[in-house]
């Protein structure tokens, strides 16, 4: 997992002065292939205003590709910190251009589509009431508080891919997972009517205490609205169980995660720690007010 790595290569397809426009089908194919491999691409046109390139860090490289008239021009980073290379791609097929970019990358690490999924909670602070239910619920230390005791996502790498359980227990529908399939968890509008009808505060202690799997067997009848389906405590528990079981079965669990596997005692311990953290934050909030 390399979620904290920035892409090491930035690509500009240059079609401005001194270069001919690429053929339409080549341009589209190059754009598609680079994007699908995880690279960002800016298409620069004659006289066009483009998004300014950010300051390059030492480990980042800028590759300018174009059908240059004559030799490709030489460019240098004025700050002298980064490598900029210009390459003529005249007559190259899209996969050959992709090969050039990969060569330019020189094997530097980057998040690659298909090998890693950016799965983490995103808090809608227009909705969040700082109730700390998410912090209490999550057993993986994804959540924490800032210096003002405001809830925040602190360790998004700890989040278990495809598990949106915390968003289901958020009473304000303030937690999104943009890669999730359905709304409102994916960021779609929150249905106010559903919210009012199904307003529900989940009793975290009941979720975490005792035999949580027994509660799955005794689940109550699900409400039929989309909102309640997406936010039921039973479903949250089921997802927690699935995540834990999947980790258990994978056989490649890091030691720190292994410690968190679901013996009831361990779950209770972790839950108590999270609850204490949330309680401390809430008390600090109250005393500050």
């Amino acid at each position: 997992m390399l979620s904290n790595e920035n892409s090491p290569v930035q690509v500009i397809l240059y079609e401005g002065k001194g270069a001919s426009p690429l053929a339409a089908e080549i341009r589209l194919a190059v754009l598609s292939q680079l994007l699908d491999k995880g690279f960002a691409v800016a298409l620069a046109k004659e006289g066009g205003r483009q998004i300014p390139t950010p300051p390059l860090k030492g480990n980042q490289r800028l590759l300018v590709l174009g059908d240059f008239v004559g030799d490709a021009p030489s460019l240098e980073d004025a700050a002298g910190q980064a490598s900029i290379e210009t390459v003529t791609v005249t007559g190259l097929a899209a996969d050959e251009v992709l090969g050039l970019v990969e060569q330019f990358r020189e094997g530097q690490p980057m998040n690659e589509p298909g090998k890693w999924k950016p799965w983490f909670p995103v808090i809608d602070y227009d909705r969040c009431t700082n109730c700390m239910q998410c912090l209490s619920f999550c057993l993986f230390d994804v959540y924490g508080v800032d210096e003002d005791n405001k809830i925040q996502v602190q360790n998004n790498d700890n989040c278990k891919t495809n598990c949106p359980a915390c968003s289901r227990v958020c009473p304000e529908v303030a937690i999104m997972f943009p890669k999730y399939s359905g709304g409102p968890i994916n960021g779609d509008k929150v249905n106010t009517q559903d919210l009012e009808r199904e307003k529900m505060k989940v009793d975290i202690s009941s979720l975490l205490g005792g035999d949580i799997y027994a509660s799955l067997r005794n689940r109550s009848e699900q409400a039929k609205s989309r909102f309640s389906k997406e936010r039921s405590p039973d479903k949250a528990l089921s997802e927690r169980k699935k995540c834990l079981t999947k980790l258990q079965q994978a056989g490649m669990i890091p030691a720190e995660v292994l410690e968190n596997l679901p013996s009831p005692e361990e779950i209770q311990r972790r839950a108590a720690a999270a609850a204490a953290k949330a309680d401390a934050a809430l008390k600090a909030q109250t005393s500050a007010n």
Partner: peptide, 27 residues
């Protein structure tokens, strides 16, 4: 993407805003 590519306008394309957010990409 095809319509943008054929529009004659400059634009920037990123692979995934979620990935950029996760990595706090300076862009």
């Amino acid at each position: 993407l095809q319509r943008l590519s054929e529009s004659g306008l400059p634009f920037e394309a990123v692979s995934d805003l979620c990935e950029m957010s996760a990595s706090r990409d300076p862009r």
